[in-house]
Nucleic acid binder design. Structure first.
Lengths: 139, 139
DNA sequence: TTACAAATAGCAAGTACCTACTAAAAAGTA
DNA sequence: TACTTTTTAGTAGGTACTTGCTATTTGTAA
């Protein structure tokens, strides 16, 4: 993207990262580019159960800023992971759901969950934050 | 971490992200925290084949800065993913290899590779960078 | 007319992340 | 002494990513 256009429009995450060079057809890099946002997997996990309106997502994921939520949704839409359907009503209604590509994330995420769980149980939660008393771990 | 100690020492990635709140025992978050660095999976994939000296890694991965390379290695070591063995020689020799936790990354990464490949083939490489002529895609 | 709900966008400020460059240790060799 | 090889650390600067706050649209209800 040009340095001149300082304008901050939401882009496809793929596209945003696609100018870094010829490494971009690396499958892992692709996955990280498309799904690597701080909240994307969290949002997707909510959509595994079915489609949701924007407001529902907001209520289900209060730790995400509104700004971030739409931004992530917008990127996921541009990258073909979620589908956005607008109903022509007056208090507007927008429903988000997973595309086929989005559905395919589920087994992949299962692998992440699996590794993370193994790590947590095997290392006994945070590995050696020796500086903190153990009691503080669960804060 | 205290705002006062501006000192920039390498921390465990787990530890660095562990103060964000009670979400941290989420397995996915854990996985992303530990393995989410820009180069970590790339480094690990190099170690799947066996142990490597620092210099070998540097040569095999020229796109990574030396600084970043040791930093990522150090974090991975602190998080228990790689093992670091120092040989008491005069031009120093240090070998890095995967721990058991590190070995377990391989199947997980396979899932990432799989998703990324599916995405690339199904969407036909970069999805709609309509602003660029198709020829430019392979730059 | 004023107020409201639902969804979304923009900007400024802050934080985290990466890179480039410089430099240190250690012990043998020229 | 000066110089090499191998591994590692520090610092400054830049870029990318997140957050907080404010604002817009559009019918309908008060």
């Amino acid at each position: 993207m040009s340095k001149l256009t300082k304008q901050q429009t939401v882009e496809s995450a793929w596209q945003r990262n696609a100018e870094l060079g010829p490494f971009d057809f690396c499958p892992v890099r692709t996955t990280l580019n498309v799904l690597g946002g701080k909240w994307k997997l969290l949002v997707l996990s909510t959509l595994f159960e079915g489609s949701r309106r924007y407001g529902e997502l907001r209520r289900l994921l209060p730790e995400i800023t509104e700004k971030m939520l739409i931004q992530e949704l917008r990127e996921l839409e541009l990258d073909g992971i979620v589908q956005r359907v607008v109903y022509q009503q007056v208090p507007p209604k927008v429903e988000y759901s997973l595309t086929e590509q989005g559905q395919r994330v589920q087994p992949m995420m299962a692998a992440l969950v699996n590794w993370g769980q193994g790590y947590l149980t095997r290392t006994g939660a945070p590995p050696l934050p020796a500086s903190l008393p153990p009691a503080q771990r669960n804060r």
